[in-house]
Nucleic acid binder design. Structure first.
Length: 138
DNA sequence: GCCAACGTTGGC
DNA sequence: GCCAACGTTGGC
């Protein structure tokens, strides 16, 4: 199983909205960056991703599961980009903020810090475990 | 194919 | 609101 992190501005699509659509999930559309696209194409059904609120909040608020693997993004007229379907799995008891990640020496290599503009990025197993622990997810 | 100009993201 | 990072566009 691979781990990921996906970003969304809560004004555009928030964790609360993601929870409301339930287990069936919804299409993670609108990614218009090829590095992010390539990451999405590597995702497998059952992989998990942190849901990060960019700009407003700047914190990891929950965990989603990939419920459908990459397919052409229906919102992309050029048909160059892809999307996946994700479903909310569990919230973090305690959101893990960007500040907290920066302050933790074990997390300084995270793509979130090194490539702040990349909206879909991989997370290592070690990073995943640690953030789950800090965030109070089982 | 290079590179300057420009647009967008996202933290501060 | 500003600005750094960085991707994209368009002229040459």
């Amino acid at each position: 199983m691979q781990y990921w992190l996906v970003k969304s501005e809560p004004d555009a699509w928030s964790w609360d909205e993601q929870v409301k659509v339930g287990k069936k999930g919804t299409a993670w559309t609108g990614v218009r960056n090829h590095t992010a696209k390539l990451n999405m194409m590597k995702m497998k059904k059952g992989d998990r991703a942190f849901f990060y609120h960019s700009n407003v909040g700047k914190e990891i608020v929950g965990i989603v599961e990939i419920v459908k693997e990459a397919y052409p993004d229906p919102t992309d007229a050029s048909a160059k980009f892809f999307c996946v379907d994700v479903a909310a799995l569990a919230p973090l008891q305690q959101p893990v903020t960007l500040a907290a990640i920066k302050a933790d020496k074990r997390l300084t290599e995270m793509a979130l810090l090194k490539q702040s503009r990349l909206s879909v990025q991989p997370v290592t197993a070690a990073e995943w475990k640690l953030i789950c622990k800090i965030g109070g997810a089982e």
